[in-house]
Write a protein that binds this DNA or RNA. Structure first.
Length: 285
RNA sequence: GCAGGGUUAGUGAAGCGGUCAAACACGUCAGACUGUAAAUCUGAUGGCUUAUGCCUUCGUAGGUUCGAAUCCUACACCCUGCA
Protein backbone atom coordinates (compact mmCIF):
# COMPACT_ATOMS: atom_id res chain seq x y z
CA UNK A 1 0.00 0.00 0.00
CA UNK A 2 1.51 3.25 -1.14
CA UNK A 3 1.59 6.25 1.11
CA UNK A 4 -0.55 9.21 0.10
CA UNK A 5 1.60 11.69 -1.80
CA UNK A 6 1.81 15.44 -1.39
CA UNK A 7 1.58 17.37 -4.62
CA UNK A 8 2.96 20.90 -4.59
CA UNK A 9 2.29 23.49 -7.25
CA UNK A 10 4.45 26.59 -7.44
CA UNK A 11 4.87 29.47 -9.87
CA UNK A 12 4.90 33.23 -10.14
CA UNK A 13 1.78 35.30 -9.49
CA UNK A 14 -0.69 35.27 -12.35
CA UNK A 15 0.98 32.27 -13.92
CA UNK A 16 -2.18 30.24 -13.63
CA UNK A 17 -1.45 28.22 -10.51
CA UNK A 18 -4.94 28.40 -9.09
CA UNK A 19 -6.62 27.13 -12.24
CA UNK A 20 -4.08 24.38 -12.57
CA UNK A 21 -4.34 23.02 -9.03
CA UNK A 22 -8.09 23.22 -9.22
CA UNK A 23 -8.04 21.05 -12.30
CA UNK A 24 -5.59 18.62 -10.77
CA UNK A 25 -7.47 18.40 -7.49
CA UNK A 26 -10.68 17.63 -9.34
CA UNK A 27 -8.98 15.01 -11.44
CA UNK A 28 -7.17 13.30 -8.59
CA UNK A 29 -9.67 13.65 -5.78
CA UNK A 30 -7.75 16.17 -3.78
CA UNK A 31 -8.06 19.19 -1.54
CA UNK A 32 -6.05 22.37 -1.84
CA UNK A 33 -3.89 24.12 0.72
CA UNK A 34 -3.04 27.67 -0.27
CA UNK A 35 0.53 28.63 0.52
CA UNK A 36 0.22 32.32 0.13
CA UNK A 37 1.22 35.00 2.59
CA UNK A 38 -1.63 37.31 1.59
CA UNK A 39 -4.66 35.13 0.95
CA UNK A 40 -4.47 34.10 4.59
CA UNK A 41 -6.03 37.48 5.38
CA UNK A 42 -9.75 37.89 5.76
CA UNK A 43 -11.31 40.53 3.57
CA UNK A 44 -8.40 40.78 1.20
CA UNK A 45 -10.03 39.03 -1.72
CA UNK A 46 -9.88 40.90 -4.99
CA UNK A 47 -6.36 42.28 -4.74
CA UNK A 48 -4.88 38.96 -3.72
CA UNK A 49 -6.71 37.11 -6.51
CA UNK A 50 -8.06 34.75 -3.90
CA UNK A 51 -9.84 31.66 -5.27
CA UNK A 52 -13.51 32.44 -5.93
CA UNK A 53 -16.30 31.09 -3.79
CA UNK A 54 -17.47 28.97 -6.73
CA UNK A 55 -14.07 27.35 -6.94
CA UNK A 56 -14.03 26.88 -3.21
CA UNK A 57 -17.35 25.09 -3.41
CA UNK A 58 -16.05 22.73 -6.03
CA UNK A 59 -12.91 21.81 -4.15
CA UNK A 60 -12.07 22.44 -0.54
CA UNK A 61 -9.42 25.15 -0.10
CA UNK A 62 -7.56 25.38 3.17
CA UNK A 63 -5.68 28.12 4.98
CA UNK A 64 -7.58 30.96 3.40
CA UNK A 65 -9.04 33.75 5.55
CA UNK A 66 -7.40 32.55 8.72
CA UNK A 67 -6.32 35.89 10.23
CA UNK A 68 -7.40 39.53 10.15
CA UNK A 69 -5.20 41.97 8.19
CA UNK A 70 -3.85 43.50 11.39
CA UNK A 71 -2.90 40.21 12.99
CA UNK A 72 0.53 38.73 12.93
CA UNK A 73 1.30 35.64 11.00
CA UNK A 74 4.49 34.00 9.83
CA UNK A 75 6.12 31.17 8.00
CA UNK A 76 6.57 28.99 11.06
CA UNK A 77 2.91 29.26 11.92
CA UNK A 78 2.05 28.42 8.36
CA UNK A 79 4.23 25.34 8.45
CA UNK A 80 2.50 24.10 11.57
CA UNK A 81 -1.00 24.64 10.16
CA UNK A 82 -0.12 23.22 6.76
CA UNK A 83 1.32 20.04 8.21
CA UNK A 84 -1.75 19.56 10.33
CA UNK A 85 -4.02 20.11 7.36
CA UNK A 86 -2.06 17.71 5.19
CA UNK A 87 -2.63 14.97 7.73
CA UNK A 88 -6.32 15.77 7.95
CA UNK A 89 -6.74 15.55 4.20
CA UNK A 90 -4.88 12.27 4.07
CA UNK A 91 -7.13 11.05 6.87
CA UNK A 92 -10.09 11.67 4.60
CA UNK A 93 -8.48 9.52 1.97
CA UNK A 94 -7.80 12.44 -0.32
CA UNK A 95 -4.68 13.83 -1.87
CA UNK A 96 -3.36 17.12 -0.47
CA UNK A 97 -2.31 19.74 -3.02
CA UNK A 98 -0.12 22.52 -1.65
CA UNK A 99 -0.19 25.49 -3.99
CA UNK A 100 1.09 29.00 -3.78
CA UNK A 101 3.62 31.62 -4.61
CA UNK A 102 5.19 32.26 -1.23
CA UNK A 103 8.45 30.42 -1.60
CA UNK A 104 9.37 30.48 2.06
CA UNK A 105 6.03 29.01 3.10
CA UNK A 106 6.39 26.18 0.59
CA UNK A 107 10.01 25.45 1.38
CA UNK A 108 9.22 25.56 5.07
CA UNK A 109 6.91 22.58 4.84
CA UNK A 110 8.49 20.74 1.95
CA UNK A 111 12.07 20.89 3.25
CA UNK A 112 11.11 20.94 6.90
CA UNK A 113 12.81 24.22 7.71
CA UNK A 114 13.82 24.68 11.31
CA UNK A 115 12.36 28.08 12.09
CA UNK A 116 14.31 28.67 15.27
CA UNK A 117 11.82 27.17 17.67
CA UNK A 118 13.52 28.52 20.76
CA UNK A 119 13.18 32.13 19.78
CA UNK A 120 12.69 34.46 22.69
CA UNK A 121 10.72 37.56 21.70
CA UNK A 122 12.46 39.57 24.39
CA UNK A 123 15.83 38.97 22.83
CA UNK A 124 14.55 40.21 19.53
CA UNK A 125 13.13 43.49 20.80
CA UNK A 126 16.38 44.12 22.57
CA UNK A 127 18.36 43.40 19.44
CA UNK A 128 16.18 45.67 17.37
CA UNK A 129 17.22 48.65 19.44
CA UNK A 130 20.90 48.12 18.86
CA UNK A 131 22.88 49.87 16.17
CA UNK A 132 23.97 47.99 13.12
CA UNK A 133 27.58 48.31 14.22
CA UNK A 134 26.88 46.59 17.52
CA UNK A 135 24.96 43.89 15.73
CA UNK A 136 27.90 43.32 13.45
CA UNK A 137 30.22 42.94 16.42
CA UNK A 138 27.87 40.41 17.96
CA UNK A 139 27.72 38.54 14.69
CA UNK A 140 31.51 38.41 14.55
CA UNK A 141 31.61 36.93 18.03
CA UNK A 142 29.30 34.20 16.83
CA UNK A 143 31.74 33.63 13.99
CA UNK A 144 29.20 34.66 11.38
CA UNK A 145 30.91 35.81 8.24
CA UNK A 146 29.84 37.87 5.25
CA UNK A 147 29.28 34.65 3.43
CA UNK A 148 26.89 33.41 6.07
CA UNK A 149 24.76 36.47 6.08
CA UNK A 150 24.22 39.71 4.30
CA UNK A 151 25.39 42.20 6.92
CA UNK A 152 23.48 45.02 5.30
CA UNK A 153 20.20 43.26 5.76
CA UNK A 154 19.49 44.16 9.33
CA UNK A 155 16.57 41.84 9.64
CA UNK A 156 18.55 38.80 8.60
CA UNK A 157 21.40 39.84 10.83
CA UNK A 158 19.17 40.04 13.88
CA UNK A 159 17.66 36.70 13.16
CA UNK A 160 21.01 35.03 12.73
CA UNK A 161 22.19 36.43 16.05
CA UNK A 162 19.08 35.48 17.94
CA UNK A 163 19.41 31.98 16.64
CA UNK A 164 23.03 31.93 17.62
CA UNK A 165 24.14 31.01 14.16
CA UNK A 166 23.02 30.02 10.73
CA UNK A 167 20.73 27.06 10.46
CA UNK A 168 20.87 25.62 7.02
CA UNK A 169 18.51 22.83 6.14
CA UNK A 170 19.94 19.89 4.28
CA UNK A 171 17.42 20.51 1.53
CA UNK A 172 16.12 17.00 1.76
CA UNK A 173 12.72 16.80 0.14
CA UNK A 174 10.01 15.24 2.26
CA UNK A 175 8.91 11.73 1.37
CA UNK A 176 6.50 11.14 -1.42
CA UNK A 177 6.35 14.70 -2.58
CA UNK A 178 6.08 16.03 -6.11
CA UNK A 179 6.78 19.67 -6.82
CA UNK A 180 5.29 21.04 -9.99
CA UNK A 181 6.30 24.42 -11.32
CA UNK A 182 4.34 26.41 -13.85
CA UNK A 183 6.49 28.01 -16.43
CA UNK A 184 4.94 30.43 -18.88
CA UNK A 185 6.89 32.84 -21.03
CA UNK A 186 7.83 36.32 -19.87
CA UNK A 187 5.66 38.16 -22.34
CA UNK A 188 2.73 35.92 -21.55
CA UNK A 189 3.17 36.52 -17.83
CA UNK A 190 3.44 40.27 -18.30
CA UNK A 191 0.26 40.49 -20.29
CA UNK A 192 -1.56 38.27 -17.81
CA UNK A 193 -0.52 40.58 -15.00
CA UNK A 194 -1.85 43.61 -16.89
CA UNK A 195 -5.13 41.90 -17.62
CA UNK A 196 -5.49 40.78 -14.06
CA UNK A 197 -5.03 44.30 -12.74
CA UNK A 198 -7.76 45.59 -15.05
CA UNK A 199 -9.99 42.78 -13.92
CA UNK A 200 -9.37 43.53 -10.26
CA UNK A 201 -10.28 47.17 -10.71
CA UNK A 202 -13.43 46.28 -12.58
CA UNK A 203 -14.36 43.88 -9.82
CA UNK A 204 -14.34 46.65 -7.24
CA UNK A 205 -10.83 46.63 -5.83
CA UNK A 206 -11.10 50.28 -4.85
CA UNK A 207 -14.12 49.62 -2.70
CA UNK A 208 -12.41 46.69 -1.04
CA UNK A 209 -9.31 48.72 -0.28
CA UNK A 210 -11.31 51.66 1.08
CA UNK A 211 -13.16 49.35 3.39
CA UNK A 212 -9.99 47.70 4.65
CA UNK A 213 -8.32 51.05 5.18
CA UNK A 214 -11.23 52.31 7.22
CA UNK A 215 -11.10 49.18 9.35
CA UNK A 216 -7.35 48.74 9.72
CA UNK A 217 -5.37 51.57 8.00
CA UNK A 218 -2.51 51.16 5.61
CA UNK A 219 -0.15 50.29 8.45
CA UNK A 220 -1.77 46.94 9.17
CA UNK A 221 0.43 43.91 8.68
CA UNK A 222 -1.41 42.63 5.63
CA UNK A 223 -1.83 45.99 3.98
CA UNK A 224 1.66 46.21 2.58
CA UNK A 225 0.44 43.82 -0.07
CA UNK A 226 0.84 44.61 -3.73
CA UNK A 227 -2.35 46.00 -5.28
CA UNK A 228 -3.31 47.43 -1.89
CA UNK A 229 -0.45 49.62 -0.71
CA UNK A 230 -0.34 51.51 -4.01
CA UNK A 231 -3.75 53.04 -3.36
CA UNK A 232 -2.43 55.24 -0.59
CA UNK A 233 -1.04 57.89 -2.90
CA UNK A 234 -4.03 57.58 -5.21
CA UNK A 235 -6.38 58.28 -2.32
CA UNK A 236 -4.21 61.22 -1.34
CA UNK A 237 -4.70 62.63 -4.82
CA UNK A 238 -1.01 62.37 -5.67
CA UNK A 239 -1.53 59.89 -8.46
CA UNK A 240 -3.87 59.35 -11.36
CA UNK A 241 -5.62 56.08 -12.00
CA UNK A 242 -3.23 55.36 -14.85
CA UNK A 243 -0.24 55.94 -12.60
CA UNK A 244 -1.75 53.75 -9.93
CA UNK A 245 -2.23 50.93 -12.38
CA UNK A 246 1.30 51.31 -13.63
CA UNK A 247 2.58 51.16 -10.08
CA UNK A 248 0.58 48.03 -9.40
CA UNK A 249 1.86 46.42 -12.56
CA UNK A 250 5.45 47.32 -11.78
CA UNK A 251 5.27 45.97 -8.26
CA UNK A 252 3.65 42.72 -9.22
CA UNK A 253 6.13 42.19 -12.02
CA UNK A 254 9.03 42.77 -9.68
CA UNK A 255 7.46 40.36 -7.24
CA UNK A 256 7.00 37.75 -9.95
CA UNK A 257 10.66 38.06 -10.79
CA UNK A 258 11.67 37.52 -7.17
CA UNK A 259 9.49 34.44 -7.09
CA UNK A 260 11.14 33.16 -10.21
CA UNK A 261 14.61 33.48 -8.75
CA UNK A 262 13.46 31.72 -5.58
CA UNK A 263 12.00 28.77 -7.45
CA UNK A 264 14.72 28.64 -10.06
CA UNK A 265 17.25 27.36 -7.60
CA UNK A 266 15.06 24.47 -6.44
CA UNK A 267 16.25 21.55 -8.49
CA UNK A 268 13.40 19.31 -7.35
CA UNK A 269 10.81 21.30 -9.24
CA UNK A 270 9.41 19.59 -12.31
CA UNK A 271 8.49 22.36 -14.68
CA UNK A 272 5.36 22.15 -16.78
CA UNK A 273 3.87 24.58 -19.27
CA UNK A 274 0.29 23.29 -19.31
CA UNK A 275 -2.05 21.49 -16.99
CA UNK A 276 -2.07 18.49 -19.32
CA UNK A 277 1.65 18.24 -18.89
CA UNK A 278 1.19 18.57 -15.16
CA UNK A 279 -1.46 15.83 -15.13
CA UNK A 280 0.91 13.47 -16.86
CA UNK A 281 3.56 14.17 -14.26
CA UNK A 282 1.10 13.50 -11.46
CA UNK A 283 -0.02 10.24 -13.07
CA UNK A 284 3.53 9.09 -13.43
CA UNK A 285 4.17 9.94 -9.86
C1' G B 1 9.85 88.77 -35.43
C1' C B 2 12.84 90.58 -30.90
C1' A B 3 14.32 89.06 -25.70
C1' G B 4 15.06 84.96 -22.16
C1' G B 5 15.15 79.56 -20.61
C1' G B 6 15.93 74.70 -22.26
C1' U B 7 17.87 70.06 -25.26
C1' U B 8 22.55 64.92 -20.78
C1' A B 9 22.58 57.59 -21.02
C1' G B 10 15.84 53.25 -21.04
C1' U B 11 13.10 57.53 -18.14
C1' G B 12 13.45 61.76 -14.71
C1' A B 13 17.41 64.72 -13.24
C1' A B 14 22.66 66.66 -11.52
C1' G B 15 27.08 68.38 -13.68
C1' C B 16 28.68 74.12 -16.35
C1' G B 17 36.88 73.85 -18.81
C1' G B 18 40.63 68.82 -16.75
C1' U B 19 39.96 63.98 -11.30
C1' C B 20 33.25 62.69 -16.57
C1' A B 21 31.37 56.94 -19.34
C1' A B 22 29.12 61.37 -16.57
C1' A B 23 26.16 62.08 -9.33
C1' C B 24 21.33 60.62 -7.83
C1' A B 25 16.41 58.50 -8.42
C1' C B 26 13.35 55.21 -11.12
C1' G B 27 13.25 51.28 -14.45
C1' U B 28 15.84 46.91 -16.31
C1' C B 29 18.87 42.43 -15.52
C1' A B 30 21.03 39.09 -12.08
C1' G B 31 21.47 37.31 -7.02
C1' A B 32 20.38 36.34 -1.65
C1' C B 33 16.64 34.63 1.58
C1' U B 34 15.35 28.86 7.32
C1' G B 35 9.49 33.02 12.43
C1' U B 36 7.34 40.29 9.13
C1' A B 37 8.79 36.95 2.67
C1' A B 38 3.33 40.44 -1.99
C1' A B 39 8.59 41.57 2.93
C1' U B 40 13.82 42.71 3.39
C1' C B 41 18.51 43.09 1.20
C1' U B 42 22.93 42.78 -2.52
C1' G B 43 25.36 43.44 -7.26
C1' A B 44 25.49 44.95 -12.47
C1' U B 45 23.52 48.56 -15.79
C1' G B 46 27.21 52.80 -23.16
C1' G B 47 30.27 49.03 -26.06
C1' C B 48 34.59 45.98 -26.01
C1' U B 49 33.53 38.23 -23.10
C1' U B 50 38.90 40.16 -18.25
C1' A B 51 40.60 45.37 -17.28
C1' U B 52 44.35 50.75 -12.55
C1' G B 53 42.97 49.23 -20.70
C1' C B 54 40.71 50.63 -25.33
C1' C B 55 36.49 52.61 -28.23
C1' U B 56 31.82 55.56 -28.97
C1' U B 57 28.47 59.14 -26.09
C1' C B 58 25.91 64.71 -23.17
C1' G B 59 20.20 68.08 -29.72
C1' U B 60 23.12 68.80 -34.94
C1' A B 61 27.36 70.96 -37.52
C1' G B 62 31.58 73.68 -36.96
C1' G B 63 35.14 76.63 -33.85
C1' U B 64 38.32 78.22 -29.44
C1' U B 65 41.70 75.39 -26.15
C1' C B 66 47.21 71.19 -24.46
C1' G B 67 42.12 69.60 -22.95
C1' A B 68 34.85 70.75 -23.89
C1' A B 69 28.81 67.74 -21.53
C1' U B 70 30.90 72.34 -19.76
C1' C B 71 33.21 78.39 -23.68
C1' C B 72 31.98 80.62 -28.92
C1' U B 73 29.13 80.48 -33.78
C1' A B 74 25.30 78.64 -36.84
C1' C B 75 21.19 75.38 -37.43
C1' A B 76 16.95 72.27 -35.52
C1' C B 77 13.21 71.36 -31.94
C1' C B 78 10.68 72.84 -27.10
C1' C B 79 8.85 76.34 -23.16
C1' U B 80 8.40 81.55 -21.69
C1' G B 81 8.30 87.59 -21.87
C1' C B 82 7.44 91.59 -25.72
C1' A B 83 5.09 91.80 -30.41
Amino acid sequence: MKKTPLVVVVGATASGKSEMVLELAEKFNGEIICADSRTIYKGMDIGTAKPSSEDRLKIKHHLLDIVAPDEEFNAAEFKRLANRTIEEIKGRGKIPFLAGGTGLYISGVVYDYGFGDKKDPLIRTRLEKETTEDLKKKAKKLALTEDDINFKNRRHLIRAIERGGIIKGDDKLRDNCLILGIDIGQDELKSRIRKRIDRMIKSGLEKEVRKLVSMYSFNAAGMDAICYKEWQSYFAGEQSLAELKEEMYKNTWQYARRQKTWFRRDKNIRWATSSDEASVLVYQF
